[in-house]
């Protein structure tokens, strides 16, 4: 197990990722930046919009840090261990954002948690088809929402899940669906060589 943890670079990569998310949540709650939009002008975007990619990218790197052929012909339950890794990473993020919310009562912490679940799910689902390209899909999603997700300078279209406030229940449902699909596809396609 320790060898598997070292192979997946859990401490070095995922640990750093979680620390960075904690820093981002502490430093950038309530910080917005005026970014380009193609559908409206004068919009500002919360800087934390980008933060979920920290977990998605570090988790993707951990999952890619493997010996595909040896793991495929292994007698250890590697797909189950990977599912555990994903669950642990998400639990870590939810814990960090939960503490953040308890301390600040800022909705941004909850939005960060929801978006991290959604984007990690999206990355995992895409990764099942495009291997390392999964993180590109998640990054693309974030940029697309910023560029064309605004209906007005302060409102997003309903498809722009990661831009919506925490009260948008369909966004939360989308996040749950995405992560379920992502984990399931990761498990089911574990026997696929890159």
């Amino acid at each position: 197990m320790i060898l598997w943890i070292r192979a997946r670079r859990v401490a070095a990569v995922l640990g750093t990722g979680l620390v960075l998310i904690a820093f981002a949540a502490a430093l950038f709650t309530d910080v917005s930046a005026p970014l380009v939009s193609w559908t409206v002008s004068h919009q500002t975007v919360p800087v934390l919009t980008f933060a979920p990619l920290i977990l998605a990218a570090t988790l993707a790197l951990c999952l890619e840090s493997r010996l595909p052929e040896a793991e495929l012909t292994s007698i250890r339950p590697v797909p189950i261990l990977d599912t555990l890794l994903i669950t642990t990473a998400l639990a870590g993020t939810l814990a960090i954002t939960g503490v953040g919310y308890l301390l600040t009562h800022a909705d941004e912490a909850l939005v960060l948690a929801r978006n991290t679940v959604f984007l990690t799910g999206l990355m995992l689902a895409a990764r099942s088809f495009t291997a390392r390209g999964g993180i590109v899909v998640a990054t693309g999603w974030v940029l697309v929402v910023i560029l064309v997700g605004h209906r007005t300078p302060t409102e997003f279209f309903s498809w722009a899940v990661t831009g919506l406030p925490i009260g948008a229940w369909h966004a939360t449902i989308a996040a749950v669906v995405a992560i379920t699909l992502g984990v399931l596809l990761t498990y089911l396609t574990a026997r696929k060589l890159p």
Partner: peptide, 23 residues
């Protein structure tokens, strides 16, 4: 740097830094 880390960081950082300069 692994592209899994480099690509999202570059995409977001370049987009962000270049965008905010005009504001």
């Amino acid at each position: 740097v692994s592209p899994i880390i480099a690509a999202p960081i570059l995409a977001c950082a370049v987009f962000y830094l270049v965008s905010v300069t005009v504001a």
